[in-house]
Design a binder for these strands. Structure first.
Lengths: 228, 228
DNA sequence: AGGCACTCGTGAGCACGTTCACAAAGCAGC
DNA sequence: GCTGCTTTGTGAACGTGCTCACGAGTGCCT
């Protein structure tokens, strides 16, 4: 059959902003706000109002003209679209500094991503408990993934071990990976990978810092485009 | 010395990829590779060759047709463009799980971002030493920023404290901020802010997971709850 | 009921980023 | 020098995302 409920494809840029709207709406809801305009939501989210409306329009027409959006209802719709109607347990590979910090980050569990397990290769770390989660041996990965129905893996190993970690995650049945190691992972096409590279972020800031200083050497008058 | 060529503006998307090329080139250089083609660099970086060439062309014409790019020279040019010819000390606000992990992350120092200091408000944490850096009181921030000539600050506090942390960083004279807290910071226009939000990344993965499984699931429960 | 103030939803135009495709340029061998 | 092979650098085409501007609903007030 040809169901017209075929889910519209939502632009990547919009998908990346929905979690931000969701957080703001949740906060506003907690503060007792029932209804919110695109203008206000844009202000809180640091974007412009037209963009908010366009983003939300991909979900459907859930606003009320002349009034705004009902906070609770919008929260529900965004959560549904993002697949947050149920929890997504995650497994962390690597119990070093970063792995420990991630395991201890309450935000994960609160937002629907409970830590189902954390594994490492280092025998010295195995058995230790981080924020209530016991570190287990990496060989137990398949079992954790299967019994806890984990589909998201987090790579928090040193760069040299990251590809192996990813391979093991994929073999264990994980279909999405969040990679903190500064390497480009090779994975089957069907696997979704997102990368967070702290050094890259700093280098981007460095570029702007350098440009700020360096711009003065040459283009004095045009140094500040946006300021008024 | 004197760059006779007016500094071209480099597209944001390219700036974000240069650090990746830089890392790969550095690795290749260490392995004894002298020369590399855009094809090979693209393969290692997980992008396509035309994009690599276009990105590098913004730096100038530093390749040799028929041959490729000289690794050492390209490393130098990218480092120069990114402002990595000298170190950029950073100061970390927040000595919780994440702050500690960041302070302990060797990658920072290695890539030219030594931790000049880490501060917190919690008296219990002050004085403790993390990876060779002593935690100091947040009131010492201005002094650290000034004596160590810090221009990049890292916000690693809980969400509720992030805006205050940012305000303090700005007052202390920092001009770029890397924000790990799940809030949109309000800062003067001249301040460059980049945000890394772990929960957002997971939610994006969740969207794709849900979409993968849920092509089949049709929109249920679109009935709107009774409006007040 | 009618008018007014407000805010959504969206088409159209523009800006930015990516990919394609090919001329230009270099190297090697003869 | 000439031929053939390789790889860069880049204009042009294309696709995606952003912004603007305005019609279309909605609620409130008189």
């Amino acid at each position: 059959m040809a169901p017209e409920r075929t889910r519209r494809r939502i632009p990547d840029a919009t998908v990346a902003r929905l979690p931000v709207y969701l957080r703001i709406l949740t906060e506003q809801g907690d503060e007792g706000v029932d209804s919110i305009s695109s203008e206000r939501l844009a202000e809180l989210g640091g974007v412009n109002a037209a963009k908010v409306r366009k983003d939300l329009s991909y979900l459907g027409s859930y606003g009320t003209r002349g009034v705004g959006y009902e906070v609770a209802y919008l929260v529900y719709q965004i959560r549904r679209e993002l697949g947050l109607t149920h929890d997504w347990p995650v497994v962390i590979v690597g119990a070093g500094n970063l792995g420990q910090a991630l395991a201890g980050y309450a935000g994960f569990g609160e937002r629907g991503f409970p830590v189902a397990g954390i594994v490492d290769v280092d025998d010295a770390k195995i058995g230790t408990v981080l924020s209530g989660v016991r570190v287990r041996h990496i060989d137990e990965l398949p079992q954790i993934v299967q019994t806890k129905r984990v589909s998201i893996g987090v790579v928090a190993t040193p760069a040299a071990a990251a590809q192996d970690a990813a391979d093991r995650l994929v073999r264990a049945g994980v279909t999405s990976i969040l990679n903190f190691a500064p390497v480009v992972l090779a994975v089957p096409r069907a696997i979704e990978v997102r990368k967070v590279d702290l050094a890259v972020e700093l280098q981007i800031l460095s570029y702007h810092e350098q440009r700020r200083a360096g711009g003065a050497i040459h283009a004095v008058g045009t140094a500040r485009p946006a300021s008024a």
